[in-house]
């Protein structure tokens, strides 16, 4: 049995089944908090805990799918290319919005960590939570956080964005399509972008654009702010 569990096929199969179950449930019940990723995560974690199969065994196959994050991020250039005229037209407001959003995210984490007396490591792990996973985990280890905590924070942030973005935009009267896309991508990276693409091609493209710039900005600014504080 161990030979089966430690085969990459096991992790890949489990991931696909859990994700498709998640998609099925979220389509069936139509509550937006029933996100496919969230359901898939609960199913896999539950299954591993009940059967006692280790995370390492799962990752033998899971890593094959994680590797695909790389080409999946690269093809985000396609919707961006289709909307390049919007980028040319509004590049100044776009940069301003991304910087403001990223700074807000960083400031919130630092401020509330200090107020609530969270440990320093925890604060550093939460700091890059609005950045996409491949960038956020690197930033986290560079500034002294725990990458696995960062990945969880990034996932929660992404699901929140994917679920709540349209409601926040409505509530805050963010009506311009470019502004909606930038807000979603800056706050909730590629996971939020999946929702932004459903809202429209402009939102999707602007959201993909914001992922990279917000990540870059956080990578540069977070260490600087930390250096100033200490």
């Amino acid at each position: 049995m161990n030979a089966i569990i430690n085969s990459p096929l096991f992790g890949i199969f489990l991931t696909l089944v859990a994700f498709e179950t998640g998609v099925f449930i979220s389509k069936k019940f139509k509550y937006s908090f029933l996100n496919p990723l969230l359901i898939g995560n609960i199913l896999i974690v539950g299954f591993l805990l009940i059967t006692g199969i280790s995370l390492e065994s799962y990752n033998v196959g899971g890593d094959y799918i994680s590797v695909m994050l790389s080409p999946a991020t690269v093809v985000l250039a396609v919707p961006l290319y289709r909307q390049i005229s919007k980028l040319r037209q509004f590049w100044k407001p776009i940069l301003a919005g991304i910087f403001a959003g990223s700074l807000t995210s960083i400031a919130c984490v630092i401020l509330f960590s200090k107020l609530l007396g969270l440990s320093n490591t925890l604060m550093l792990s939460l700091l890059p939570k609005s950045v996409t996973i491949p960038m956020g985990s690197v930033i986290s280890s560079q500034i002294g956080g725990i990458p696995s905590v960062t990945i969880i924070a990034i996932t929660v942030t992404g699901i929140t964005g994917a679920v709540a973005a349209p409601a926040v935009c409505r509530f805050c009267h963010i009506k311009h399509k470019v502004a909606q896309g930038i807000a979603i991508g800056t706050a909730s990276h590629a996971l939020g972008t999946t929702r932004a693409m459903e809202m429209g091609e402009v939102q999707g493209a602007m959201s993909s654009l914001a992922i990279g710039i917000a990540g870059l900005f956080t990578a540069v600014v977070a260490p600087l702010i930390l250096a100033c504080l200490s």
Binding site: V45, S66, I151
Partner: peptide
């Protein structure tokens, strides 16, 4: 896109 985020989230 979301599928590829599932394994890291575990």
């Amino acid at each position: 896109l979301a599928l590829f985020f599932l394994p890291p989230s575990i």
